[in-house]
């Protein structure tokens, strides 16, 4: 399967932002260091109107990343053929530089749960996820990137560390990876793991994109810290530091700032992108 799916053009090794329609005019007029935008695929699967017109206009100025949140690649049920067809259509007309999805599930049977839900890492789930990635790459005709999840709990039956699981998926399917540094920090804190060990065992050669984003702080029943991947705040310093460490190992990569809830005004988001630009500037 390796290299069976040609790569897309790829995103520039520069800052990008998760696109929000309220930033349409400001983003175009004063992009600052932003060279690319990422859209959630499902929000642009309507038939027409403003959402599609905005993407057509923005594509003239920025590279585009299509980021799916609804394929349910980690699901126990087969991928939805209608949704795959919609994805193929979106990729055909928007011609993105990258397509990514999550190591998670969101659909069970007929029900779509609108969240990225966790799966155990076993030989069985490995085969199924690999099959699903093969199927997606065959449908879109390109390599996809798979994102590491943020975890709030673990499964007793898991037999693979997450990084080994991702490494094996890369080997079996030829997919690339989207390394979400905030998710690494959130999961490591929540599950009592070391971020250093995670990054060291992560297959960094396969990374095609990096995410940073904000999280909230809470506590579990035992009073242990429980971080929530809320995307509703500035990126924390600890996550920026982790990004620096990752970039030292990977070299320059496309870095996306995600801010999906309580979306701030454009200058505030652009400031976050500027911080990503600084991190990239320090990278050889």
């Amino acid at each position: 399967m390796l290299d069976s799916s040609p790569r897309m053009d790829g995103l520039p090794a520069a800052p990008g932002v998760g696109y929000k329609p309220q930033h349409f005019y400001d983003l175009r007029a004063e992009p600052g260091p932003v060279e690319w935008i990422e859209i959630h695929a499902e929000n642009y699967m309507g038939d027409g109107g403003r959402p599609l017109a905005q993407i057509r206009a923005l594509s003239e100025q920025f590279s585009l990343s299509v980021h799916g949140v609804g394929l349910s690649i980690g699901g126990q049920t087969p991928l939805d053929p209608d949704h795959l067809a919609r994805l193929k259509h979106l990729i055909h007309w928007s011609k993105p530089a990258s397509f990514s999805e999550h190591l998670a599930w969101s659909t069970h049977g007929a029900e779509f749960l609108n969240d990225l839900l966790p799966l155990p890492y076993t030989n069985e789930t490995l085969c199924r996820v690999a099959d699903h990635i093969d199927q997606v790459q065959a449908v879109i005709g390109h390599q996809m990137l798979l994102e590491n999840p943020s975890s709030y709990l673990a499964f007793e039956e898991s037999t693979w560390p997450e990084t080994d699981f991702l490494c094996e998926l890369v080997k079996r399917t030829g997919c690339g990876l989207l390394l979400d540094v905030n998710n690494v920090f959130v999961s490591a804190t929540n599950l009592g793991l070391s971020t250093q060990n995670y990054i060291e065992s992560f297959p960094l050669h396969a990374v095609g994109e990096i995410h940073v984003g904000g999280h909230d702080e809470d506590f579990d029943d035992q009073g242990a810290p429980l971080l929530i991947d809320s995307h509703g705040k500035p990126v924390r310093d600890t996550v920026w530091h982790l990004l620096d460490q990752v970039l030292l190992k990977t070299g320059k990569k496309p870095v996306l700032v995600e801010w999906d809830n309580d979306v701030p005004d454009w200058p505030t988001l652009r400031e976050e992108a500027s911080r990503a630009a600084q991190a990239l500037a320090m990278t050889a």
Binding site: D115, L117, P120, A154, F155, N190, D221, Q222, I228
Partner: peptide, 26 residues
């Protein structure tokens, strides 16, 4: 019942994060 906090303690209210995400987002 097969969910833990990563160190063997039952997940308990950690599951509520997902419950809350789903309900609140919908």
């Amino acid at each position: 019942s097969n969910l833990t906090d990563g160190a063997g303690t039952p997940a308990g209210s950690r599951f509520s994060v997902y419950r809350n995400n789903v309900t609140v987002s919908l």
